[in-house]
Design a protein around this nucleic acid. Structure first.
Lengths: 208, 208
DNA sequence: CGGGAATTTGACAGTGGTCAAGTGCCGTGG
DNA sequence: CCACGGCACTTGACCACTGTCAAATTCCCG
């Protein structure tokens, strides 16, 4: 997405980019940073439906109105484009399709998490997302004798994590404490966690 | 999707179209019928992640392998196309994008349902999907004095409903019984339900 | 009408939610 | 440099909702 009429915008942490229901005249690509998309129920319950990183596209609505709110998790740089322009850029269509398809697969996994996983499995799956290299096929485990640890930076409050995982803040906190007690993780700072045993964590996700 | 190399296939009810993990060489469009996409956890838990009707596209994977299994809910007619051909049909790209975007919005709603709604709200939301005309903006209610009822055909077993809503079969059954007791619905046949008060049902969805 | 599967119902248990109190972290200001 | 205040997070006690397991019932179809 690097053509006419693109505009670069910078956002601070926790800035709102748009609200659900806003007229969707612009679409966005993440250049750097992270964004969450969420929906609210009238009584205030919130569900974070997607978390997006660099290269992701968002704000392309099916019907002219944003179906989610978008908010940054960290200071973020976005490239934005008028929606009309996007539609006319035929050469972009295939790129858009590809982005949407990966996001769709993530949404499917997230549905499994929300519909069928326990609190521990949800938190484990969540932490596991941050271990980049292991995302792929076949958690083969570490090379033998290798220390299988990793420190990750969440960049999300407990409330945001809870709203993403379909839990409450207290449950998220309790699961973290449990995992700490069992030696799976160390909480170095509230928002920075060392996974002592990635392979062990993987088994807690329910996917293996 | 009406070009070279398309192939029409007919499937009976509950036929499997493909399994998760199969090589994704063909993509599908629903001509007539209904299809569910689901994923399984290794211990057998299942989550239905999408239910699709006519015109929907599915089986377009981000990475060459189907990320979900696909199974018909009713006898279904599909049009299929080699994946390579689809990619080359530039004139289709915009259509694909549009389909994916609507599906994405549905997935967002489904995430809210799975992450934040109670059993009753889930079942109510589920039934509400079948009331076609009311899907849109502003459940304005029936014209005054009008009988506000509707009979819907589910075409899904209780197990399929449960796996779609992230519940157990027993909970789904109990919620149906509750609603019957409270006069919101009548269960004419296990799979055919009369909604006595659409507006009332709508209030049970949690979205109002 | 009969048989088997799907659904419903009941009793009970457990996970996660709620509400309230306690602790810790971090920035501000003295 | 340290004391203070506020906010985020953690912990505890209790409860409700939904899951589990088992039994009864109904539905569907031959």
């Amino acid at each position: 997405m690097n053509s006419v009429n693109t505009k670069i915008c910078r956002f601070a942490q926790h800035d709102v980019i748009f609200y659900e229901g806003d007229m969707a005249d612009r679409v966005f690509e993440i250049v750097e940073g992270a964004v969450m998309l969420y929906k609210l129920l009238p009584d205030g319950r919130r569900q974070v439906v997607e978390m997006l990183g660099p290269q992701a596209l968002f704000g392309i609505p099916a019907h002219g109105i944003y179906d989610c709110a978008a908010e940054t998790l960290v200071p973020t740089v976005l490239r934005s484009l008028r929606r009309r322009d996007l539609e006319e850029q035929m050469d972009l269509q295939q790129h858009i399709t590809r982005c949407l398809l990966s996001q769709m697969e993530r949404l499917h996994d997230h549905a499994v998490l929300l519909g069928r996983k326990s609190a521990t499995e949800r938190v484990a799956s969540f932490l596991f997302r941050f271990v980049a290299n292991r995302g792929g096929v076949g958690c083969t485990g570490p090379g033998k004798g290798e220390v299988d640890e990793e420190t990750v930076r969440l960049n999300m409050t407990r409330q945001e994590i809870a709203d993403f995982l379909g839990l409450t803040i207290e449950t998220v906190s309790r699961v973290f404490s449990d995992m700490k007690r069992r030696g799976v993780i160390c909480i170095e700072k509230t928002d920075q966690i060392r996974i002592n045993n990635v392979c062990g964590l993987c088994h807690l996700t329910g996917a293996h």
